[in-house]
Design a protein around this nucleic acid. Sequence first.
DNA 1: GTTGAAAAATTCCGCCG
DNA 2: CGGCGGAATTTTTCAAC
Lengths: 156, 156
Amino acid sequence: MTKIQDLDKLDKEILSILMKDAKIPYTDIAKQLFVSGGTVHVRMKKLEDLGVVKGSRLEVDATKLGYDITSFIGIFLERSNLYHKVIEEVKLIPEVVSAYYTTGNYSIFAKVCCKDTMHLRELLSERIQAIEGIQRTETLIALEESINRPITLTKD
Amino acid sequence: MTKIQDLDKLDKEILSILMKDAKIPYTDIAKQLFVSGGTVHVRMKKLEDLGVVKGSRLEVDATKLGYDITSFIGIFLERSNLYHKVIEEVKLIPEVVSAYYTTGNYSIFAKVCCKDTMHLRELLSERIQAIEGIQRTETLIALEESINRPITLTKD
DNA sequence: GTTGAAAAATTCCGCCG
DNA sequence: CGGCGGAATTTTTCAAC
């Protein structure tokens, strides 16, 4: 398993820059960090090969695309060993953008994006509650997204 | 306010491709969608100007960077009108990657990334619980990230 | 880690339907 | 006006040092 010890300050500085904006040219980063463009390229190649970098994504404004309701759904299972079976069903629902197996109140915790309240209601009653093994769910509706940012890497 | 009516099928197809991988060259997208590279460029410029595209981010494997514990923290406020004041304090904590104002059990719902359980314990007791206006918190630890993907845009 | 040169992509602009 | 095509500029990529 690969760990931090393989990463030096330069690797982390490159990552910090690209985590905020993946489209910054390597040549710009090279200038900022006083190394050559080739070096940035080699480091990124290494980080990709190590699996530290998994890819890049465009950040979009869900509201402007018509997805007005972001909500979190806490799922209670009938038995906790149903987790894998249930998560496979959840994966088939495109509105689910993330899902975690968690300790605490819920067994599964998912984030979903819906167009409006009707869409959310249908999703809950017809798609999620319909999954075998789910006992009940609790929904938290996000009224405002106050923070959404990448991890801050420490310098050392 | 800008809405979907300004976006046609081509815009959405471009977005769908880039939401999965922001580094795909515009020329490749142009080939896939049978338009010129210039057109993809113009559309993306429009989408950025409209604020539909907010930026791009590198996806990293937090575990490989030494952040082993992802958890969700539900925050109960003493009074709900303390929201803005509290969220400003929460913003100052770098381990918090997202936070939402929510309906339901909690007033604020945050996601945090910590290096280990000790780091999480310190964060909770010394940084979060120390914020004035927070009554109590509930923590859900994510044992496994099963799904993490962009919204699926519908074709129409 | 660096350099430099070839290949590719971005970006801009004039032209056309 | 939106889309196309080509040319100038930048960036990526890769070999040799």
